[in-house]
């Protein structure tokens, strides 16, 4: 109400948000419609789901919520993802296929993230073709697996391994990028190279300005900076049942993220020619390694190696904004 130009996006994220049940979402929509009569037009919803529980009832209520695209993830390698200690990927992926077929029948779009694990490193190009065959329009993102605790399944990878994984795929993508236009991070990096520092399109991880744009709200109403901060129970901004969203967004703890961007420019990232592309990366990645925010991301090396060893030699392009 105070800022009539602002819009808010509620990203339903888990775990698996569909475990909440369809009635939960119906109730949420009902509350939005009854309590936000003047602002509901500025509230958008998005959802991340593994799709194994999706059914027509969910789709009907999601459509009422204005959701016409669902974010998901997919893993073709056996026994990485699935229920039980043996990770029953056969069951999981069949349910996933049923899910995407139901979405297609309802004209609901979907995009996915592919999480790169140690097992992905064996055949990167084959994996790339599998994924581009499987999702021929709309593309996907490739992100490294992030392990918070003990790596029980031995799937963690190093930043260099992630860079080499992308680097093995990149020549094939570059040669045929008209065929696979929406594969990230390649597409976004290419777009930013083309812009050379102007009108960059950067997600929260690379933008350096996540401080005042996100808030995590947990199942009990507890808030934090983002989902990962919530998982780690750091940067608590209080409970949304006791504190207004406005106050939560003004929480002084957020200033540290702004200060970090200014600080890194002259510290860990001083002189880095890729500064405009990543701004030191995700503060939570830094926290994961150093238990404090005032460091660059532990994935910095992945970006450097990929850009300098693979992207620039293959494309012949150079990112010169700070050179």
């Amino acid at each position: 109400m105070l800022n009539p130009g602002e819009r808010i996006t509620l990203i339903w994220h888990g775990g698996e948000p569909l475990l909440l049940g369809v009635d939960y979402f119906r109730k949420a929509l009902e509350l939005q419609n009854s309590l936000c009569t003047e602002t509901k037009g500025r509230i958008e919803h998005a959802i991340q789901s593994n799709l194994t529980l999706i059914n027509q009832e969910f789709i009907d209520v999601f459509r009422e919520m204005g959701i016409n695209q669902i974010g998901t993830s997919f893993e073709p390698i056996a026994n990485i993802r699935g229920p039980g200690t043996k990770r029953d990927s056969a069951w999981y992926n069949r349910k996933f296929m049923e899910g995407i077929n139901l979405l297609a029948k309802n004209n609901i779009g979907w995009g996915f993230i592919y999480v790169v694990t140690r097992k992905s490193l064996e055949k990167p190009v084959e994996l790339f073709h599998y994924l581009t065959n499987f999702k021929m329009s709309g593309g996907f993102n490739m992100n490294p697996v992030l392990i918070y605790g003990e790596d029980k399944d031995n799937i963690a990878i190093t930043p260099i391994e992630f860079a080499d994984f992308l680097g093995a795929i990149f020549p094939e993508w570059w040669k045929n990028r008209h065929r696979y236009p929406d594969v990230n991070p390649f597409k976004s990096i290419l777009g930013n190279y083309n812009e050379q520092g102007r009108n960059l399109s950067l997600g929260c991880v690379d933008s350096g300005n996540c401080a005042n744009s996100h808030v995590y709200i947990g199942p009990e109403g507890e808030t934090s900076q983002c989902g990962r901060a919530g998982d780690w129970q750091i940067n608590s901004y209080g409970n949304v049942l006791e504190r207004s969203l406005s106050d939560i967004f003004k929480d002084p703890q957020r200033e540290e993220f702004n200060r970090r961007t200014e600080y890194l420019k002259d510290a860990d990232c001083a002189g880095c020619r890729f500064w405009e592309l990543c701004h030191g990366g995700c503060p939570l990645d830094a926290y994961h390694k150093h238990k404090e925010f005032m460091h660059k991301t532990m994935w910095c090396e992945a970006k450097h190696v990929f850009l300098e060893k693979y992207f620039e030699p293959v494309t012949g392009m150079t990112f010169n904004v700070n050179a």
Binding site: P76, N93, K123, H129, Y130, N133, N176
Partner: peptide, 15 residues
């Protein structure tokens, strides 16, 4: 083909 990870699933010409 994809559920069974048959070799065709990772063939660049599958499409």
């Amino acid at each position: 083909i994809f559920l069974n990870s048959e070799s065709c699933s990772s063939c660049p010409a599958w499409r």
